[in-house]
């Protein structure tokens, strides 16, 4: 009986497992194999030659290859950290604002907030590159009205990455607000009623009821926000091309330049593996932190 059950379970699982194996595991394993090879993306795999850890030595070395990779890794880290730090609190704030049942037009507000997420990145990039224009950009014109001088935005290595982060936050915050609202709906209203009877004010209710019970939602949001941020590509490719001085050169864009444009498949794979490892470490650390707090 158990044998028959196992056989039928195997048959039922086979299509999904095969698809995952072919389209997820094989490319991942291939990338890991390629990171130890010297290989041009324009040649067959059979022409790859084993170089051991040579590609990793190169990407962490002191030559331009290493410098550019380390800059791209740092840029990606800053971009991800800033995006998450801005998106999560904003999504909770907007979620709380929109979730107030007594506020008229809450659904319309949710729709407006979510709509930014539905706008294609090409349109967002076109509009924001004009908004950021140093001379005729509306942002600088508005700042001028309140007596603030023109800002360089995308034209300075100091502000270009932050400008791209702001664009990302604008586009993504609606989606995370919807997630926050979904989390808020799971909190029983009776807890707030009890807290009110016990004399807890709004701030205390937020700190001791809302935030702790939103923890799982926020963990999910943080993981998704990190993954989205690490994969940033379009605004860089469409607006800044990684400049100026490589200040917006993020890893996905850099891997594309090295792996496809220069056809250095081995180096590109080593960079992709490092990106994957960084993401795994980061997300695992986040889960471990939340689980430890839960067990405490």
């Amino acid at each position: 009986m158990a044998k028959a059950f196992r056989a039928s379970a195997g048959i039922m699982l086979a299509p999904a497992v095969t698809l995952i194996g072919v389209f997820v595991l094989v490319p991942m394993l291939l990338t890991i194999w390629l990171c130890f090879q010297d290989w041009s993306t324009q040649t067959p795999f059979s022409e790859a030659s084993f170089v051991g850890l040579g590609n990793f030595q190169e990407i962490f070395g002191s030559t331009s290859v290493g410098r550019d990779f380390k800059t791209a890794l740092l840029n990606t880290t800053i971009y991800t950290a800033l995006s998450v730090v801005l998106i999560l609190p904003l999504s909770v704030v907007f979620g709380l604002l929109v979730y107030q049942r007594e506020v008229a037009g809450g659904t319309a507000l949710r729709t407006v907030l979510f709509s930014t997420y539905m706008v294609p990145m090409i349109a967002v990039a076109l509009v924001w590159s004009k908004l950021y224009s140093p001379s005729e950009g509306p942002l600088n014109q508005m700042l001028g009205l309140v007596g603030i001088g023109p800002q360089p935005w995308l034209s300075s290595p100091r502000s270009a990455l932050v400008s791209i982060v702001l664009l990302n936050v604008w586009q993504q915050v609606g989606y995370f607000t919807v997630l926050a609202i979904a989390g808020l709906t799971q909190i029983p209203g009776s807890l707030y009623e009890a807290a009110t009877l016990d004399g807890a004010n709004g701030r205390e209710q937020f700190r001791f009821i809302t935030l702790p019970l939103l923890r799982r939602t926020l963990l999910f949001s943080a993981v998704i926000a990190i993954i989205n941020a690490v994969q940033v590509f379009e605004p860089v490719a469409l607006i800044t091309q990684g400049g100026p001085v490589g200040s917006t050169n993020v890893l996905t864009y850099h891997i594309r330049r090295v792996g496809i444009e220069r056809a250095q498949g081995g180096l590109g794979s080593a960079m992709a593996v490092m990106l994957m490892l960084s993401l795994i470490v980061c997300v695992s650390a986040l889960f471990a932190l939340v689980n430890r707090r839960d067990s405490e």
Binding site: S129, S133, P134, S135, E136, P152, L154, S155, S156, A237, L238, I239, T240, Q241, G243, P244
Partner: peptide
């Protein structure tokens, strides 16, 4: 340098600043 940026289409502020007489 802040007036020198180019975009993916090889246009952008560097061109804008020359055509606008800056």
């Amino acid at each position: 340098p802040a007036m020198a940026t180019a975009d993916a289409n090889t246009t952008g502020p560097f061109l804008d600043n020359f055509v606008s007489g800056k």
